[in-house]
């Protein structure tokens, strides 16, 4: 159990059996009363936002979260299949659960999956992934100075902006946190 003094932005807690992350915590103290901590929380399952105020002295449930290393296998009928790399157990997530991460999922990508009470709730991608360009305008060779960008489609279906000098068939590194091009890579 947590005390109210433990409540900080980023802490994960459990309310009525559901995992939440604190997005804002503020100490408030009426002149003639107990102290309170006003929190804004976000459900780790639904993403919905909740306001909750705890009185100093209240106990707050810890959130039992477990991270497991997984490898992405394939997508079929809107289900994304992963394999636990230590137990070889397979698990499928829906497109909703995978969310925007789906645009960076390439076969054999190692990801980390967050479980709450045995149920998968979110996917953590590596910060950088390497993907192949399957479609873009012809490259302007040697133009490494110009800051102009052009659109490119990747093997996963994602669209990104890339510099003029990269061509179809080349591999590039993407920052999954921003969705931006980082550099060209040799494969």
């Amino acid at each position: 159990m947590y005390e109210t003094s433990d409540l900080k932005k980023g802490l994960k807690v459990e309310i009525d059996g559901e995992p939440y992350v604190i997005t804002d915590a503020q100490f408030v103290k009426p002149g003639k009363g107990n102290a309170f901590t006003r929190c804004k929380l976000k459900s780790l399952i639904t993403g919905l936002v909740l306001d909750r105020t705890w009185r100093s002295g209240e106990k707050i449930d810890r959130c039992q979260l477990e991270e497991r290393p997984m490898e992405y296998l394939y997508e079929a009928d809107g289900q994304y299949h992963f394999m636990n790399t230590s137990t070889y157990e397979q698990i499928a997530l829906s497109a909703d659960q995978v969310g925007e991460s789906s645009q960076w999922l390439i076969e054999n990508l190692e990801v980390s999956m967050l479980f709450h009470n045995g149920k998968p709730i979110s996917l953590d991608l590596p910060n950088f992934v390497e993907l192949e360009i399957v479609e873009t305008e012809p490259g302007v060779k040697g133009d490494t100075k110009s800051s102009t960008m052009k659109a490119a489609r990747l093997s996963t279906g994602a669209s990104v902006q890339v510099p003029l000098f990269v061509s179809q068939g080349e591999w590039i590194k993407i920052d999954t946190r921003t969705g931006q091009y980082v550099e060209r890579v040799k494969r």
């Binding site: 408030v28 009426p30 003639k32 009363g33 107990n34 309170f36 006003r38 306001d51 909750r52 105020t53 705890w54 009185r55 002295g57 209240e58």
Partner: peptide, 20 residues
Amino acid sequence: GLHTDEKDDWDDLFFRLMVE
């Protein structure tokens, strides 16, 4: 729709209203 705790006394409940 405000959270309360069984150990809240009347004043605690009053301050929850005020604060929130």
